[in-house]
Simulated scan of single mutants.
Amino acid sequence: MSIKLREDVVVTGTLIWYLKICPREVWYMARQITPYEGHPKLEKGRAIHQIYSDRIQISLEGMKIDGFRREERTVIEIKSSSRHLESARAQTNYYLYRLKEVGLNCEGEIYVPKKGERHRVTLNEDQVRRDLEEVKSIVNSENPPPRVRIKYCKKCAYKDFCWG
Rank of each mutant, 00 (worst) to 15 (best):
P40H: 01
K155N: 12
L19V: 10
V11E: 02
G164A: 03
K155A: 11
T92Y: 01
V139P: 07
E101Q: 10
Y36E: 12
M1L: 08
G103I: 05
R130F: 01
K79W: 06
Y97L: 07
V75L: 08
E101C: 08
Y158K: 05
K114N: 08
R118D: 07
L42D: 01
E101S: 11
Y28T: 06
C106G: 03
I21R: 05
H84F: 15
T34M: 05
Y158V: 04
C22V: 02
T34V: 11
G38E: 06
P144Q: 03
Y18D: 05
D66G: 10
D8E: 14
L99N: 06
I33H: 04
V75R: 04
V26K: 01
M29N: 13
H39K: 00
V9D: 04
P23K: 10
V128Y: 05
E142H: 08
M63N: 12
Y18M: 04
H49I: 02
E37F: 01
R83C: 11
E142G: 07
H49M: 01
I16W: 01
R83T: 15
I21E: 03
D160T: 11
P144F: 01
A90T: 07
E117W: 00
G116K: 07
K20E: 11
K20Y: 06
T74Q: 00
V26P: 03
T92F: 01
W17S: 06
L104I: 15
R98N: 12
G67W: 02
I65A: 09
E77K: 07
L60G: 14
N140A: 09
E61G: 15
D126R: 12
A90L: 06
L42W: 00
L5R: 00
L42I: 00
Y18A: 07
K155T: 08
V135A: 03
W27A: 06
N124A: 10
M63D: 09
V11M: 02
E133N: 11
E72S: 14
K115D: 13
P146T: 13
V11Q: 00
H49W: 05
I110A: 02
E71K: 14
L132Q: 04
E72V: 14
V9M: 02
I51V: 15
T14G: 00
G38D: 13
K151I: 07
R24T: 11
E43C: 10
V135Q: 02
E107Y: 11
R73A: 15
V121C: 08
E125F: 08
W163I: 11
M29V: 15
K151S: 07
F161D: 04
E77V: 14
G164P: 15
L85D: 06
K154F: 00
K100R: 10
F68Y: 15
E117T: 12
E107W: 04
K44G: 10
K154M: 05
A47F: 05
M1C: 09
K64N: 14
E61P: 15
V11Y: 02
S80K: 06
P35F: 01
E142R: 03
A88T: 10
E25V: 12
R73V: 14
A30T: 13
H49R: 12
E43I: 14
S141P: 09
P23G: 13
L19F: 02
Y18E: 13
K79T: 13
V112E: 01
S80I: 10
V75P: 13
L132H: 02
I3M: 07
W27G: 09
Y18G: 04
A157H: 03
R130P: 09
V135G: 03
P145N: 08
T122S: 11
G67P: 15
V102K: 00
K151M: 04
D66C: 13
K4P: 08
